[in-house]
C-alpha cells in the first residue's frame, strides 16, 4: 500500500518523522483524513488528537495550536504542542482538568472562563489520546 510521509515538529523538537498509511487530524473545521497522494492542502488544526495508521495499528498524538500542510506526498504538522500518547502525563492532565472545572464553577468573568474552558479541553483531549492509544495497544514507545 502506498504510504505518505508524516512529520510533526514543534518549536522545541521534532516529534515524529516516518512513512504511514493514513493520517487523521483534528482540523479546525472538523476532522480530516489524509492518504497517500493527497492533493496539496493546508489547514489549521484545533486542539485534539491526531492519529496515524501504520502496519494495521493506530497511533495517537495530542496536538494543540497547529497547522497541517500536505504537499508532495508529505504531511507536515507544525504545532505549538505535540505529545505522543506514551509521553502524556496523565496525572498532570487529570489535575489540570480538576483545576479547570473548579475555576469554571467559580469564575463568572468571561476571559477567565474561556481560559479555563480551553485548559479543560486540552486536558480532556490528552486523556482521550492516552486511552485511545491504550485500547489500540500502541501506548508503548
Amino acid at each position: 500500500m502506498a504510504q505518505i510521509n508524516l512529520e510533526i515538529v514543534t518549536p522545541d523538537r521534532k516529534v515524529l518523522s516516518q512513512p504511514v498509511d493514513y493520517v487523521g487530524a483534528p482540523g479546525i473545521e472538523g476532522e480530516f483524513g489524509i492518504m497517500a497522494n493527497h492533493v496539496p492542502f493546508l489547514s489549521a488544526l484545533g486542539v485534539g488528537n491526531l492519529y496515524y495508521k501504520e502496519n494495521g495499528k493506530y497511533f495517537y498524538v495530542f496536538v494543540a495550536g497547529g497547522f497541517a500542510e500536505v504537499s508532495n506526498n508529505k504531511v507536515t504538522v507544525l504545532a505549538e504542542v505535540a505529545e505522543k500518547a506514551a509521553e502524556i502525563d496523565v496525572e498532570r492532565a487529570r489535575r489540570s482538568q480538576e483545576r479547570a472545572e473548579e475555576r469554571m464553577r467559580q469564575q463568572k468573568e468571561k476571559l477567565d472562563f474561556a481560559r479555563a474552558q480551553a485548559a479543560l479541553q486540552r486536558s480532556m483531549a490528552r486523556m482521550r489520546c492516552r486511552s485511545s492509544a491504550e485500547s489500540a495497544g500502541t501506548c508503548a514507545l
Binding site: E29, V39, L42
Partner: peptide, 15 residues
C-alpha cells in the same frame, strides 16, 4: 499546485 485551504486564506492568516 493550487492548495486547498481550510478555513479560508484569510482565516488561516489570522491563525
Amino acid at each position: 499546485a493550487e492548495y486547498i485551504y481550510e478555513p479560508s486564506v484569510e482565516g488561516l492568516l489570522a491563525e
